[in-house]
């Protein structure tokens, strides 16, 4: 369970560039909730994910995972609870290291890193099986440098590394936005598969409203640092893109349709 309570984050406080990125946000995700997050540029979607991940600390409010207060926990210590996939496919893997080395790094997330050899034979077989599930042929390229893979392959690998330890919370920050449509669909399909299989509590930011409607059991919309819409269950299943646009202009007072980025 992930709980944000009255979280506020202000950038450049007290200057002319002051920006309230998160304005007193409260949000509770139950175990297994798969929440899609939409909103215009600068609405606070990524800031919310980063506040959960610990990229920066919230100015006020608390973040708890499974009852553990992680508000002041540094990023690398939170990683024990959290799996992440970034927008930039280059960001989630170490380019100069092999596929299996990257997976071994992910496999020890939240554990002490000792002076034992980094990869055991048994692990290698496990990785091979896991990679074959991606159906990208990576299972035969364990000792290939990740930097030689395509963006889509790297993103799929990052996703696998994010979920392989079955984290308490999975954060997907527009993780298909930088991919071509076909690859994006593949990665999204894989995400859905892992989330369902491992019953992962997930926050997925997307700019694609169709994806936001088609995936997950709950949808939230953000605007100017606030959550302006929160729809779940049956109601979400009945959503359409048109209906969503209408709901947005009602709740925010602006015309969502003008935000071209959201129509994707």
């Amino acid at each position: 369970m992930l709980e944000l309570k009255n979280v506020t984050k202000i950038f450049n406080a007290g200057t002319i560039n002051e920006k309230v990125a998160l304005d007193d946000i409260s949000l509770t995700l139950n175990d297994g909730d798969f929440v899609t997050v939409i909103g215009g540029n600068g609405a606070g979607k990524s800031t919310m994910l980063n506040a959960v991940a610990g990229t920066y600390f919230a100015d006020s409010g608390t973040v708890t995972v499974d009852g553990v207060d992680i508000t002041r926990l540094p990023e690398h210590k939170r990683a024990k609870f959290i799996g992440r996939v970034f927008q930039d496919p280059m960001m989630g893997t170490a380019a100069d290291m092999w596929i299996e080395e990257n997976m071994a790094l992910a496999n020890r997330r939240g554990m002490r890193r000792s002076l034992r050899w980094a990869i055991t034979k048994k692990e290698r077989e496990k990785y091979r099986t896991m990679l074959s599930e991606l159906e990208l042929g990576l299972e035969n390229r364990l000792s290939t440098k990740v930097g030689l893979l395509s963006g889509g392959q790297r993103q799929a690998l990052t996703l696998l590394m994010a979920v392989m330890k079955q984290p308490k919370v999975l954060l997907l920050d527009e993780h298909t936005a930088a991919l071509d449509p076909k690859t994006a669909a593949t990665v999204l399909q894989l995400s859905e598969k892992f989330i369902t299989e491992y019953k992962l509590t997930t926050l997925m930011v997307t700019h694609n409203m169709k994806d936001a409607i088609a995936h997950g059991n709950r949808l939230i919309m953000m605007n100017a640092g606030k959550i302006v819409l929160d729809i779940c269950g049956e109601e979400k299943k009945k959503l359409t893109v048109e209906k969503l646009l209408e709901l947005f202009s009602k709740s925010s007072g602006t015309d969502f349709a003008n935000d071209r980025a959201l129509l994707g």
Partner: peptide, 28 residues
């Protein structure tokens, strides 16, 4: 030997991609 160990490869990852290392729980 050292850079082949769990700790050693975490050091290599730190130099290679610091953002990824933090996300994988490495104390960079």
């Amino acid at each position: 030997w050292f850079f082949g160990t769990e700790f050693g490869s975490a050091v290599r990852a730190t130099g290679c991609n610091i953002k990824m290392s933090k996300a994988q729980g490495i104390n960079t």
